[in-house]
């Protein structure tokens, strides 16, 4: 891709606009997802375990496990991604535990967040920071 001077200028302009309202766009996207899932309810912090590596050697494939005994469903969010939603696990009657593992993409170092909807309609959340290292040679 060839970048012209005009494009460079436009990029600089874009960057300054983004700088004028730091994080808003991304934070709002997470907040919308959370509001849609919880309906704005208060969230506790007990009874949900989020397991993710402290440091991910590559952001393309980060293993994550969520576990909340008695939960109806668990939402997983990558709060620093352009589109934060990762997954919603809905547990059926034959789920032996309210535990699930998957692999997610993280665009940069950020907080991964899980929110569990419990059987009584209450919500709990857990957050963990995952540092995504930007190396490039990889070994």
């Amino acid at each position: 891709m060839t970048i012209t001077r005009r494009q460079t200028f436009m990029m600089a302009l874009g960057a300054s606009v983004a700088a004028a309202m730091p994080f808003r766009a991304f934070a709002d996207a997470s907040e919308d997802s959370i509001a849609a899932f919880t309906g704005g309810a208060e969230m506790g912090t007990e009874g949900l375990t989020l397991t993710a590596p402290e440091i991910a050697e590559n952001g393309n494939t980060v293993p994550v496990e969520v576990s909340a005994p008695g939960a109806v469903s668990i939402m997983l969010l990558a709060t620093g991604n352009p589109t934060p939603d990762a997954a919603i696990f809905n547990f059926g009657p034959l789920a032996a535990s309210q535990t699930a593992s998957t692999r997610i993409r993280l665009a940069k170092t950020q907080n991964v967040m899980a929110i569990a909807k419990m059987a009584d309609g209450s919500f709990v959340q857990a957050t963990q920071e995952v540092k995504v290292t930007i190396g490039g040679c990889g070994g």
């Binding site: 980060v62 589109t83 990762a86 809905n90 547990f91 034959l94 032996a96 535990t99 699930a100 692999r103």
Partner: peptide, 26 residues
């Protein structure tokens, strides 16, 4: 399992290439 739900996952673009899931069933 035999028509009863174990898990039902809504998946978004943050799920990695070649989606992998692990979970428990009764």
């Amino acid at each position: 399992f035999n028509g009863q739900s174990v898990i039902d996952v809504t998946m978004e673009p943050a799920i990695s290439t070649n989606p992998y899931f692990e979970f428990e069933a009764t």
